[in-house]
């Protein structure tokens, strides 16, 4: 196992004129897990990552890699490998040339550069100029650059952008592997769906503020089941719900029972002899929870500021 430092953000604030891009943000990213850093576009994710990586100065608050700021590490790129969305490539440089440019500072040799191009599937394009690379290839080259120093921490900004479904699956396997080795992995995304199967923990921010931080399982637990029921005897269903203490509301031709799965409703209706013509699961799933979080900017769990 690799002993990786955790990443931390403490009371972080960044203002651009009147705009509070990041607003008193505090969260912790633990080693041995993949943490999804989620929020709609413009929520302040990239700004937060830039401050975490010493590219931008916080208006107030601080960031940590282990026990100190990123830039205070003697060879920071050997501690945190990062690929930011804004990072560019010189179009006239080859993929291999790009890696070689950044190799000296992390002590990587030519073999390591070739090995990484192999890891990210760019061996065949090593000698081609980056100007000819597709978006997905650039994304892979950015990842290879981040991995140059074999860092215990990995910070990736929207890494799934430009990747095809196969690429996303490849990235998931890679990141799961890193977490399993004990590394700290932080991945930002504006789409929960793209990282849902990759992350262990989630940190959700909206308009620069933390709205939720927990394990993915805890976020999923905020999802509410429900069932849509159509019966020729609507009154009987309402009576059944009242006896069970289920909240119901009229919907289209029938009723929606909140907080109960369709299975439970079906079993109860069968037991009580209530005739049903339609029984459809209709609850909120993880995606709905995420969308509600990002739309309202409030934590559904009622824990403002979220868990540390």
């Amino acid at each position: 196992m690799i002993a990786a430092p955790s990443l931390g953000v403490d009371g972080l604030t960044k203002t651009f004129g009147p705009l509070r891009a990041v607003d008193d943000l505090t969260f912790e990213v633990r080693p041995g897990a993949v943490t999804g850093f989620l929020g709609p576009n413009g929520a302040g994710k990239t700004t937060t990552l830039r401050m975490l990586l010493g590219l931008a100065t916080p208006t107030s608050g601080s960031t940590r890699v282990g026990d100190r700021p990123y830039a205070a590490h003697p060879q920071p790129a050997r501690v945190v490998g990062a690929a930011l969305e804004a990072t560019g490539f010189h179009p006239g440089r080859t993929g291999l040339g790009h890696l070689q440019v950044y190799a000296p500072q992390v002590g990587a040799d030519l073999d390591r550069c070739h090995e990484l191009l192999d890891t990210v599937g760019l061996s065949a394009a090593a000698g081609r100029r980056v100007g000819q690379y597709s978006m997905g290839m650039r994304q892979r080259l950015g990842l290879a650059t981040a991995l140059l120093g074999d860092p215990p921490c990995l910070v990736l900004d929207e890494p799934t952008n430009g990747l095809d479904p196969e690429g996303i699956r490849w990235l998931r396997t890679l990141l799961r592997g890193f977490a399993a080795e004990g590394r700290t992995v932080l991945v930002s995304s504006h789409l929960l769906g793209e990282v849902q199967n990759t992350v262990d923990d989630v940190v959700v921010i909206v308009r620069g503020r933390l709205v939720h931080a927990s394990s993915l399982a805890d976020l999923a637990a905020l999802a509410e089941p429900g069932a849509y029921v159509v019966s020729p005897t609507a009154g009987a269903v309402a009576d059944l719900a009242r006896r069970q203490g289920w909240p119901v509301r009229a919907h289209e031709r029938g009723l929606v029972v909140d907080g109960v799965t369709a299975d439970v409703v079906g079993t109860a209706a069968h037991r009580d002899g209530v005739e049903l013509h339609e029984l459809t699961p209709r609850g909120t799933d993880l995606e709905d929870v995420f969308l509600r979080l990002t739309a309202t900017g409030h934590d559904l769990a009622g824990t403002p500021g979220g868990a540390r």
Partner: peptide, 18 residues
Amino acid sequence: TTEFRHHTITQTLLAEPR
């Protein structure tokens, strides 16, 4: 200026923040 034109300055400062 190429560092700024092609945004490689980001990667450059990640490698050498001093």
